[in-house]
């Protein structure tokens, strides 16, 4: 096995976990599971809209317009949260389909642009290059630090903005499915742990999932992202049904 192929992908997994574990915990608490899909859709919409109005985005401009779209999504989400309150999940769903269909309408006569633009924003973990990890690493460390030192910030509207920045990055690194899984599964598996373990246990759990998933995708020659998602889900299932864990809980 050529570890040099898997290494950048593994590093990308760790970087994504840094921000997604704290964000995922808050997503679970708020009960807004599909928010990442909505934000990713808005990032794509930002790029497609820029293209529609005549900007041929390259390099950093792509990031700029994607982030603009994602931030617009974040602002709209904080607005729906205010007006829909307990029905925020419905608000997320509606914003998701609106963003998705707005993209469809903008690219109705423009398949070349549309499809390629959307591909720009959905990465595959194996294509990750080392330089891409630097901005993601910085964002990840900032979010991890804030979740520990300024955890109150996560309870405010600012959460949506942090979330938008992190998701726009991570979707480009590892794709939508892995982002969703990384956000939800480790956080869910660690729900019953006491508070101080709730950050580092899920990160370790996630790192193990990425490592095993990447090795298995290499052994069985399967698409890496999909294998990691399954490994993560099965590992968390095993963890939650683990009889050893119950014993320690009873004895404590």
């Amino acid at each position: 096995m050529e570890f040099s192929i898997l290494l950048p992908a593994f590093a990308a997994g760790i970087v994504v976990l840094l921000s997604h574990v704290p964000l995922g915990r808050e997503v679970l608490t708020r009960g807004i599971i599909f928010i990442d899909l909505a934000i990713a859709q808005f990032a794509g919409l930002g790029l497609i809209a820029a293209n529609y109005f005549g900007f041929e985005a390259h390099g950093l401009e792509i990031q700029f317009f994607a982030l603009l779209g994602a931030l617009l999504g974040a602002i709209l989400l904080s607005v729906t949260e205010r007006f829909l309150a307990d029905y925020q999940e419905a608000g997320i769903g509606i914003l998701f389909v609106l963003a998705a269909t707005a993209s469809l309408l903008l690219i109705a006569n423009n398949p070349h642009g549309g499809e390629q633009l959307q591909n720009l924003l959905v990465g595959q973990i194996l294509w990750v290059e080392w330089v891409q990890l630097i901005p993601a690493m910085i964002i990840g460390l900032i979010i991890l630090f804030m979740s520990i030192s300024y955890s109150n910030l996560f309870k405010t509207k600012w959460f949506y903005l942090l979330f938008a920045v992190a998701i726009t990055q991570s979707v480009q690194l590892v794709g939508v499915y892995l982002v969703f899984a990384t956000l939800i599964i480790p956080a869910l598996a660690s729900l019953k742990l006491n508070k101080e373990k709730q950050i580092f246990f899920p990160i370790a759990f996630g790192i193990a999932s990425y490592a095993i998933g990447l090795i298995m995708s290499s052994v069985f020659d399967l698409p890496s992202g999909a294998v990691i998602v399954w490994v993560m889900a099965l590992l968390s299932l095993a963890w939650m049904c683990n009889p050893l864990k119950k014993q320690t809980k009873d004895s404590s």
């Binding site: 294509w127 990447l214 698409p223 992202g225």
Partner: peptide, 14 residues
């Protein structure tokens, strides 16, 4: 036009 990246594809290219 589209493919899913697999580890062995990269090692074959190497």
């Amino acid at each position: 036009h589209h493919i899913q990246a697999r580890p062995r594809l990269i090692s074959k290219a190497r």
